[in-house]
Amino acid sequence: MVLIVNEVFDDAEHESPDHPERPGRVQAAMAGVDDLHLGEDLVVAPRYSATRAELLRVHAGGYLDELGAYCYGGGGDIDQDTYATYDSWSIATLSAGAGLSVISELQRRGEGVGFVAARPPGHHALADRAMGFCLLNNVAVAAAALASQGERVAIIDWDVHHGNGTQQIFWDEPNVLYASMHQWPLFPGSGAATEIGGPRALGATINVPLPEGATGDVTWRAIDEIVAPAVEAFSPTWVLVSAGFDAHRLDPMADLCLSDADYADLAASVSRFVKGPGRLAFFLEGGYDFGALRTSVASTLSAALDAPLSTEPRSNGGPGFDQIDRVKAQRLTAIESWTREFEKEGQL
């Protein structure tokens, strides 16, 4: 099977001293791709910058104007976590465009798996605000483009942080499902099981908060018992993965304890959500330990390509296994409760 990648390499000017979201992350992720030794089965999609019209599907025009002006004014700290430089606007639009280019290549070929090794990451970027290292919401731009073509898109987010930006953008969008598994409590503070979507898309937002220390067996159960049934009911025509690798046990930014093999399991699971060839793409989000990022990317893509790689063992035995039952119950109660509420208000 073909792997189609798009990487943003000349992004050395989007960096800030001592900041963990740095250019070497892309090189580490691409080293994981190299470890697969794909030869001619590795295809590089053309470089492409997202247009204003493509960005406007998910971002407010005023925000795009402000962000561009801020960058070209020299940039600086946007908030306590997020920075921009003079070059950040061009790098961010290339990152958003990378997803579009990979999808376009997948559509042209009708086969393969996509990997968007671009930064800055995107899933915290709100419609009108940068945050959490993110300037433009790359996976959202891609999902919105597909939705505009009549596709039904499932976004599976396994970054250790909740993708609050993606959730907000598609909160009430019936053609895009958003499912996240993340450590909680943790930045950005959102992602409770009771956050389930707006009246037009009730139940199409799925959140599985996991406790500190949770291992692969817990994420497996979350996928199997909560995410998979919702995705199957939604019946997506495309699956996009917000593939952060900061839930790895070696990552310094959080406290989940996944191993490389767990990412392979997750990738195998989401691959089963896809109903046809050439309709699955992974988007790099977090992941700040270069070694873990490299091996996790290799594991993920090898499983998606159905060419398993020898990795460290699966993790198990951490806390949170019982929490899955509580999440299921909370989610069910929230859906029933909001259905009654929206019916009362005449929104259903």
Partner: peptide, 17 residues
């Protein structure tokens, strides 16, 4: 205005948000 913000810019303004 909080830590590190460039004076005169609206982006990233917690107070405005």
């Amino acid at each position: 205005r909080g830590h590190g913000k460039r004076p005169g810019t609206m982006i990233g303004s917690v107070s405005l948000e």
